[in-house]
Measured scan of single mutants.
Amino acid sequence: MLYRITVRNADGEKLEIVVEMSEDEVRALAEELRKAGYEVRVEPIPEGEEP
C-alpha cells in the first residue's frame, strides 16, 4: 500500500515522502523516526488516488 510520510525536525523543516510498504513496515519506520526525535505523520493513500 502507498503511504505519505511527513517528517519534521526540531527546527520545523519538513520532508514529505511517498512509500510503498506494508502497514507493519511503515509503523516500524515511524517509530524509529520518533525515537530519533522527529515528529512523524503517516497517512495511507487510498487506491486510485494520486500520491
Rank of each mutant, 00 (worst) to 15 (best):
M1L: 14
M1P: 11
M1R: 12
M1N: 11
M1K: 08
L2H: 12
L2T: 06
L2D: 02
L2A: 05
L2W: 08
Y3N: 02
Y3H: 08
Y3D: 01
Y3F: 11
Y3V: 06
Y3W: 12
R4P: 00
R4L: 11
R4D: 01
R4S: 03
R4C: 03
I5V: 12
T6D: 02
T6F: 14
T6E: 06
T6A: 03
V7D: 00
V7N: 00
R8V: 12
N9V: 08
N9C: 02
N9G: 10
A10Y: 12
A10E: 07
A10G: 14
D11T: 11
D11R: 12
D11E: 10
D11S: 15
D11A: 15
G12N: 05
G12C: 13
G12K: 03
K14H: 12
K14Q: 12
K14V: 11
K14R: 13
K14L: 13
L15A: 10
L15K: 14
L15H: 06
E16L: 11
E16P: 02
E16W: 07
E16R: 06
E16Q: 10
E16N: 08
E16F: 14
E16H: 06
I17G: 02
I17N: 02
I17C: 04
I17A: 03
V18R: 05
V18P: 01
V18S: 03
V19M: 06
V19T: 04
V19I: 08
V19L: 06
V19E: 01
E20I: 10
E20F: 12
E20D: 05
E20K: 15
E20W: 08
M21G: 04
M21L: 14
M21T: 03
M21F: 04
E23G: 07
E23Y: 12
E23N: 08
E23S: 07
E23I: 07
D24Q: 08
D24T: 12
E25G: 14
E25W: 06
E25I: 05
E25D: 07
E25R: 06
E25S: 07
V26M: 07
V26I: 09
V26Q: 01
V26N: 00
V26H: 00
V26D: 00
R27N: 11
R27T: 11
A28R: 09
A28N: 11
A28V: 13
A28H: 13
L29C: 03
L29R: 03
L29G: 01
L29D: 00
A30H: 02
A30Y: 03
A30R: 03
A30F: 04
E31G: 09
E31C: 13
E31I: 10
E31Q: 13
E31N: 11
E31V: 13
E31D: 06
E32A: 10
E32Q: 14
E32L: 14
E32T: 15
L33P: 00
L33F: 10
L33I: 06
R34G: 05
R34S: 06
K35V: 04
K35N: 06
K35L: 07
A36C: 04
A36K: 15
A36H: 11
G37K: 01
G37H: 03
G37P: 00
G37S: 02
G37E: 01
G37M: 02
Y38C: 03
Y38P: 00
Y38R: 02
E39A: 05
E39Y: 07
E39P: 01
V40N: 00
V40K: 00
V40R: 00
V40Q: 00
R41V: 05
R41T: 14
R41F: 10
R41G: 06
V42H: 02
V42R: 00
V42P: 00
E43N: 07
E43I: 10
P44G: 07
P44S: 08
P44K: 12
P44A: 08
I45A: 04
P46C: 07
P46L: 15
P46T: 14
E47L: 12
E47K: 15
E47T: 14
G48V: 15
G48S: 14
G48T: 14
G48E: 06
G48C: 03
E49N: 13
E49C: 07
E49Y: 14
E49G: 14
E50V: 10
E50H: 14
E50R: 11
E50Q: 12
E50A: 15
E50K: 15
E50L: 11
E50I: 14
P51C: 10
P51L: 01
P51R: 05
P51H: 09
P51M: 01
